[in-house]
Simulated assay, not measured.
Amino acid sequence: MNHPLVSIIIPIYKVEQYLRRCLDSIVNQTYTNLEIILVDDGSPDGCPQICDEFAAKDNRIVVIHKENGGLSDARNAGLNICKGVYISFVDSDDWINPQYIDVLIDIATKEKADIAISEYIKTTENNRKKQNIIFKKNFSSKDALLRLFSKNNIAFTVSWGKLYKRELFSSLRFPIGKYHEDEFTTYILFYNSKKIVYTSEILYYYYQRAGSIVSTRHPWDILEYLEQRYIFFKEKKESDLLPLLLPPLCWQLLCAYWHQSKNKNISNNYLNKLRFYIKDFQHIKKPLLHYIPLKIFAYIPQLYLIYRRISPLHIRKEF
C-alpha cells in the first residue's frame, strides 16, 4: 500500500494546559508518514518550550516560532511550508483518535476523494460518547455544499477533522484577522473538489474552552462571509444553491440595521443593500416565509425595530 506524506498543521497560542495531550495524540498516530508542523503563534506561556521539547524527540516535527497573528495567520504559515500530499488541521486544545489519519487516508485513497471528513464529538477528558454504527458516504461537490448549508453541519463546516489534498490550497489561504475563518474557506474547498467522502466514525475530540474563539459570536464577520459566499455562487451561476444562501444574508443585513439603531447610529446603508438583495428573490424560487417579512421590513424598518423589541426569538439573532 502506498503511504503518502501527510502534513498536520497545529496553530498554537496560550494552550499550555492542553498542548501535551494534543501532541501526544498526533505523534502516536498509527499512520507514521507524517510531517507535523507546530506553529507557535507568539504564545506567551510555556507552549514554545513544549514545542521545542517535542521536536527534539521526533524528527517528523517542524516548529515555527512567529509573532502573534491569529489563527488564520498561523494556519497559513504552516500551509506555506508544508510538503505533504495531504493536509490536516488540528487545533491545539483538541486531540485525535490514534487511527485518525489511518482511517481518513484509507477512505480518501480508496474513494479517490479530494476531501475526507470524520465525525467529531464535543468532549472533555472524562466524557466520551459511545460510537454509533459506523457508516461511510460519498458526496459530489454539489451534494456536499447542500449538506454544508443545511442544519447540523458542524463536521462539514470546520477546517479541523478533515483530510485535504494539498492542491486544494494551491491558491487559497485563510482570511487574516477574521473570526469564523472556516466559513470563508470551506465552501470554496468543497466547490473545487470533485468528490468528498464522510465517515460517521468519531475520530476527532473537540474541546471548547471558556473564552475560546468559537465561544463568542462575531456578527460583522458573519455578515461578511454570508455576503461573500452568496456573491461567489451567484457569479458561478449555481442557481439551486441561491435559495439557501439569500435568506440568511438578508436577515443578517436586517440585524445589522437593528444593531445600528440600538446604538443610535442609524444609517440606511444596510437597508439599501438589503433592498438590493431582495430583488434577487425575483429570480430564484422564493422561500415565502422569508421573502414576505423581509420585503415588509426592508421598506417599513420601523416594524422590524418594534418586532425585535417585543419578540425574544428571531430567525437570525446574531447581533
Rank of each mutant, 00 (worst) to 15 (best):
L163W: 00
A210V: 12
R21H: 07
I64M: 10
I196L: 05
K317N: 14
E224S: 14
Y31P: 04
E235M: 10
R309S: 01
T124A: 05
D45S: 10
P247M: 05
S140N: 09
D40A: 03
S43D: 09
N97H: 15
Y191C: 04
P243D: 07
A116M: 06
L203N: 05
S72I: 07
I278P: 02
V197A: 00
L79P: 00
K151V: 06
D182M: 06
N76S: 06
K137P: 06
T199I: 03
E227T: 09
A144T: 03
Y299V: 10
L104T: 09
S261Y: 10
E183M: 12
D143T: 13
Y120M: 13
D93N: 13
K136A: 03
S193M: 08
P301L: 04
D73R: 06
P248E: 11
I133W: 12
P48C: 06
E224Q: 14
V197P: 03
Y277W: 15
K237H: 14
Q252T: 15
F174H: 07
P4C: 04
S88K: 02
K122L: 12
D106T: 15
L71G: 03
L168I: 01
D58M: 07
I37H: 10
N263W: 08
S215A: 15
I64F: 07
R173H: 02
Y13P: 06
K285E: 15
L245V: 10
V15F: 01
L168S: 06
H3C: 01
L289G: 15
G177Q: 00
Q29V: 00
N152P: 05
S159H: 09
P293D: 10
T157N: 05
R128F: 12
L203S: 04
V90E: 07
L313S: 11
S171D: 11
E35N: 02
